[in-house]
Amino acid sequence: MTPALKHMRRAAGYLAILLVTSFLIFVLIEAAPGDPAEIMLGTSAQLDTVAALRAELGLDRPMLVRYASWIGGVFTGDLGASYTYGTPVGELIADRLAVTVPLTLFATFLAICISLPLGVWAGARPGAVTDGLATIFAQFGIAVPNFWIGLLLILFLSLGLGWFPAGGFPGWGEGLGKAVSALILPAIALAIPQAAVLTRVTRAAVIEVAHEDFVRTARAKGLGRNRALWLHTVPNALLPVVTMLGLQIPFLISGAVLVENVFTLPGIGTLAYQALSQRDLIVVQNVVLMFAIIVIVVNLIVDGLYAILDPRLRTHK
């Protein structure tokens, strides 16, 4: 099979997964108690008013038709209107993504900046003091809930030292500096557990690759220990690290919901959470689908990254 065909097949597989996932979401939300029209109009509304609104929202159509029209809307960008706010769900989500996407990217960037040197440093000399310190960081970082890290950061750095705002988001219109400083603490809180996991994986991968023959070949060419480590061992150790980065995405998203809550950031997690408490089910439905899409798209990107990191996966025999 040619690589192009393989990628297409994989993409088709992911698309099928998305369809199944979306159907599952749809059915679950359908089964949820509470009629949207009744929620919108309140319990005192007349029966015929409710019926009229149901018709207007298209809720009286058969389930499969409604599912199809929802999926069609996903492709055209028309996701319907929020039951509570009346604003288009698409706009609502886009607004909130402007906070969540920078936040998660920032956190991932921080996590890589922490874990890569730490993991390589630890893996280069297993059993040394540095290895011990990195291992302790990894064990604690994995065990500590990110929302608690967020609370501690607020306690010490915001309330204690007053370095950062304790929460809220001024919006990107208020200037880059203010917006970024509002994201720093949440990003750290989100990054630490990620960094811990990645440190562990990096360390293990470096230890394994360091025993490979080609590292010895590099040393035999006259490369010093560090040069061989960074030019030969590390590039070959990145594959499992990238895999783990992909596997961590669901955790990153869960984490974002929690951390946004701690720092009262108007992100997608807060939106989902608020929508749930207001029973704005159409928002819940779309947000959850969007999360699933993000997970799957990131997995596709990770697949593509493999090919860059490992030339063996790029060409075919």
Binding site: D213, F214, T217, A220, N236, D310, P311, R312
Partner: peptide, 24 residues
């Protein structure tokens, strides 16, 4: 030794499969 290796003393290894860096 780093200055000698490669420049003054070269080495060929047993396994051509694993002795070369697969990512380069």
């Amino acid at each position: 030794m780093c200055g000698l290796r490669g420049r003054k003393i070269g080495m060929i290894f047993q396994e051509p499969m694993s002795a070369l860096n697969p990512a380069m």
